[in-house]
């Protein structure tokens, strides 16, 4: 598969190397979710800078990585959304909530290092 998955301490870094088919996107999702449990990872960084198209399917898959990882106790940060892809996402009106994004790997790892904020008293 054209995704390199590296382990860095408590985190996984999934670096997508080329455009992915839908099947490969789903395989990546399942692989990451499984690894979170197996290695008790606290965070996932997905580098999407090699993706030059993020359409509704890819957006949904990225969201489901983040949501499923959260249920398994890990947080997810997406890095490297290309400028043109960002424009396409906005114009398409794709919803990437609750995905957290960062510009590069350093920033993503720094985000993961921040401990989650305390939930508000009435919080979910």
């Amino acid at each position: 598969m054209s995704v390199a998955i590296l382990r860095k301490g408590e985190y996984f870094i999934a670096s997508i190397q080329s455009d992915l088919s839908d099947t490969e996107v789903l395989a990546l999702r399942d692989d990451l979710i499984e690894r979170v449990g197996r290695f008790r990872a606290l965070g996932i960084v997905v580098d999407v800078s090699a993706l030059d198209v993020i359409d509704s399917f890819a957006a949904r898959a990225l969201r489901s990585i983040a949501l499923a990882a959260k249920l398994r106790g890990a947080r997810t940060v997406i890095v490297g959304i290309q400028p043109d892809v960002a424009v396409a996402i906005v114009q398409f009106r794709l919803n990437l909530d609750p995905l957290r994004t960062a510009l590069d790997l350093d920033e993503a790892l720094a985000l993961l290092e921040l401990r989650p904020e305390r939930k508000p008293a009435d919080g979910r």
């Binding site: 455009d19 839908d22 030059d52 198209v53 400028p83």
Partner: peptide, 30 residues
């Protein structure tokens, strides 16, 4: 779904050859 990968690459390449400027090739491919 492998054909999708080909279709969007072809669409982007054609848009670029036709002189579309950023971000249009990406919008067309999407």
């Amino acid at each position: 779904d492998a054909d999708l990968v080909i279709a969007r690459a072809e669409g982007r390449a054609m848009a670029q050859r036709l002189g579309f400027r950023r971000p249009d090739p990406t919008l067309i491919a999407t």
